[in-house]
Computed example of a mutant assay.
Amino acid sequence: MIHTTHNVLLKFYDSFSKLDAKRMAECYHPDATFTDPAFGKLNYDEVCAMWKMLIERSKGNLSVEFFDLKSSKKNGTAKWVATYNFSKTDRKVVNEIYAKFKFQDGLIIKHTDSFSLWKWSGMALGLKGYLLGWTPFMRNKIREQAKDSLNKFLAK
């Protein structure tokens, strides 16, 4: 049986692949939270702004592929790959992500993306990221910069 939550995941990733942050936001519950290795924990307004910011900064140079969507009434998972040039270094990143979802009222209430921050930092930052990306210092620096850029975007 395909749950309506499956259609929510399809809409979310289809909208993402079309770089449509507005339609992505429609998939989140107003009390939603999002967590990932780069941005940490975000609330509804922050996660909606994060997708908008990432899409705008990609300047059309972002491709999103999604597959293996699974869902029940309360939970879901997906695998997706984002390919883009990291805006600060213009280095190509191919980030493989595993997503977990919890649903409430037919919308995403909790979204957790998991990926290797060390692998990401090697692709995005080059040798420095490859050599230091696994260290707590570098991980904290990446999170700090991600949150800072999001806060500046939100302030606009």
Results as ranks from 00 to 15, higher is better:
84 Y>V: 02
16 F>K: 02
131 L>P: 01
137 F>A: 01
71 S>N: 07
79 K>D: 06
6 H>N: 00
124 A>F: 00
109 I>Q: 08
115 F>A: 15
53 M>P: 03
60 G>Y: 09
133 G>Q: 01
61 N>S: 14
10 L>Y: 04
97 I>M: 11
28 Y>S: 05
11 K>E: 01
116 S>V: 14
149 S>N: 11
137 F>I: 08
67 F>K: 13
101 F>C: 08
86 F>Q: 07
66 F>T: 12
92 K>N: 13
123 M>G: 04
134 W>M: 08
19 L>Q: 14
73 K>S: 12
139 R>L: 02
133 G>W: 01
1 M>G: 14
156 K>S: 15
86 F>P: 00
112 T>E: 13
108 I>R: 03
134 W>S: 02
86 F>G: 04
118 W>R: 06
53 M>A: 09
93 V>A: 11
52 K>Q: 15
61 N>A: 14
105 D>N: 15
100 K>A: 12
40 G>E: 01
115 F>M: 05
55 I>R: 00
122 G>P: 00
80 W>N: 07
77 T>N: 06
71 S>K: 02
4 T>V: 02
143 R>N: 12
51 W>M: 10
68 D>V: 11
82 A>N: 03
96 E>S: 12
34 F>E: 03
99 A>L: 09
106 G>N: 05
22 K>E: 11
56 E>A: 10
120 W>H: 06
40 G>S: 11
